[in-house]
């Protein structure tokens, strides 16, 4: 890794391996996530995208390898160092992960209450600014159970950006949303990158979203990164795995008919 690359990259992942017992989930992952751009990590279900995201966030300790983010190697850092790095990131989880015992406003204000000494009025104003950014100003006093799927995701995004993070992570932002709401969210992600200059990492398999928002794409399969590049480079890739993904082809399964029959019948 050259010094030059390190200054241009927000996250540098080297030789990352994750094992769950005997199963290898991530196999020697190497990835550079550039600063101030949107990196989309795509792949089929079970490719290891979410595990990679959990490792970057420090929620899962990798078996080996390194993840340099905000001056810290997340893979080997202490809990205190990880918490220090996390104060500079925002995460919007797939289901929102909003606290159901709080209103939308209280959810968004929580990081400010925990990490700053701002007065009540300032906290409320900052919360409303973020709610306005995601078009949720009217929902400030609603309970989480009263929100639709799209509203919950937007509220989660408002909470993720309340501390003006340097890095923003999305786990499946468009999953389960209607096309119109998904498009709104995509536009919001692009706006955030442009207006706040954030580095954004999106884990998804929604093709429409990917090519709309991505500056760079990393394609994963079976725990490996099979290709990285710009959307144009990925589209033009001749790799059959990538073409299969892009053209929504079902996974090819090579079946040994006899072996399959034995498996179905238990050998009888």
């Amino acid at each position: 890794m050259t010094g030059n690359t390190q200054t241009d990259t927000a996250i540098t992942i080297r030789n990352l391996v994750v094992d769950y017992g005997p199963r290898r989930i991530l196999n020697d992952i190497n990835l550079d996530i550039p600063s101030g751009q949107i990196m989309v990590i795509m792949g089929q279900s079970g490719a290891g995208k979410s595990t990679l995201l959990r490792c970057i966030l420090g929620l899962k300790k990798p078996t080996s390898g390194s993840i340099h983010m905000l001056g810290t190697d997340i893979a080997t850092a202490s809990q205190k160092e990880i918490y220090k790095a996390r104060k500079q990131i925002g995460v919007a989880f797939q289901g929102g992960a909003l606290f159901s015992s709080m209103t939308v406003g209280e959810n968004i204000e929580l990081p400010l209450r925990e990490h700053t000494n701002l007065d009540e009025k300032t906290i409320q104003i900052m919360s409303r600014i973020k709610l306005d950014m995601v078009n949720m100003l009217d929902a400030e006093h609603l309970m989480v159970a009263e929100l639709s799927g799209g509203m919950a995701k937007r509220a989660a995004l408002a909470r993720a950006i309340i501390m003006d993070p340097k890095l923003l992570f999305f786990d499946e932002p468009s999953a389960g949303l209607d096309p119109s709401t998904a498009a709104e969210l995509d536009q919001l992600i692009i706006t955030l990158k442009i207006s706040l200059g954030m580095t954004i990492v999106v884990v998804t398999h929604e093709l429409d979203s990917i090519f709309k928002i991505a500056d760079h794409i990393a394609v994963m399969k079976d725990g490996n990164i099979v290709e990285t590049g710009t959307p144009q480079q990925i589209s033009a890739s001749t790799n059959p795995e990538i073409q299969g993904l892009l053209n929504r082809k079902p996974r090819e399964t090579i079946v040994d008919t006899d072996a399959h029959l034995r498996r179905l019948t238990g050998g009888f």
């Binding site: 959990r54 420090g58 918490y83 996390r86 925002g90 289901g95 925990e114 909470r159």
Partner: peptide
């Protein structure tokens, strides 16, 4: 329920100690 709906992970990612909170 907080664990399976990623609310505990969300707390961790906000650098809020679940033990304290």
């Amino acid at each position: 329920i907080m664990r399976i709906t990623e609310q505990v992970d969300a707390l961790e990612c906000m650098a809020i100690s679940p033990d304290k909170f």
